[in-house]
Amino acid sequence: MSNRPVLICGETEGDGISSSTLELMRAGKKIADDLGAELSLVIIGNNISGIADEAASYGANKVYKIESPLVEKFMADLWVGALEKLCAQVNPKVLLMSHTNIGMEVAPRLAFRLKTRLTTDCTDLEADKAENLLLCTKPVYGGNAVAIFKYKEEPHFATVRKKIMAPAEKVSNKSEIINVAPDMDASAVKIESLKIVQEDAVSLDKAEIIISGGRGIGGSEGFKELEEMAELMRKSSGSVVEIGGSRPAVDLGWLPSSRQVGLTGEKVSPDLYVAIGISGATQHLVGMMRSKKIVAINKDKKASIFNIANYGIVGDYKEIIPAFNKKWRELS
């Protein structure tokens, strides 16, 4: 067994390990097995002993714990520095992060410092056993193509899209937990965090039904119509129903960015996805095309959303939705 591990940079979520980290651990384990390497995990934060203990149940050989009050909140500058040092210490063969806000910010900077090449937002990872390399599959061109990257530079470094892989399951063997001296310097922080403002704690990925609006909605007013529809459905079916939106709807300020579905927003796969006034730019389709059933309502027949919809209505949602709601009530 190689002494150069597959190292996963974990994230915490509340008091626990994040679900995306667990997903990474499953993927990482397979890679490690295929390459004949150990699996290691690193967790960074303040007061994270409990989390480290929990994390030790998911099959990693080692769990590195970097604890410091300086990283109570996520601090990119400190994370990058800490990880750079850790890598120098453990010399990982493969380095994996989730394609989360943290991963997006830390990975490129870290890759630069480690003088390696990074593939971001991967949807699949595979070990090339013959060449002892990592194959990273990644949608490119807004999802219009899929590329596989294979770089020789080490550590092989990738960030992985959430919700693509199943999370790792607990195992009986506990990982060895290694405390790493934080060696953090507050002066390294160049960005002053003034405050964090909570806006809209929605988890689109947990919704069973998503009613999404796009540029065709015409304004934030229009979303009230959609909200009424969502409320109706919530009541009648008991499902988790959420409002979502395309990038233009978010960019135009009609919805908070947490509700954005698409390439740079959430990628979702609910039972029913109702796309209203969404033309279907690939960048949006990438985020919702895995939905089990898709309904599209659009005035423009040429909208490409219809290409991936199960049901389509060509027309003005302002006329269609009230009638839909009325009928739905009748039927409920």
Partner: peptide
């Protein structure tokens, strides 16, 4: 591409 798709669909509809 998109105009032809749109027009064809409108004609059909």
């Amino acid at each position: 591409e998109s105009f032809s798709e749109n027009n064809a669909a409108m004609f059909k509809a």
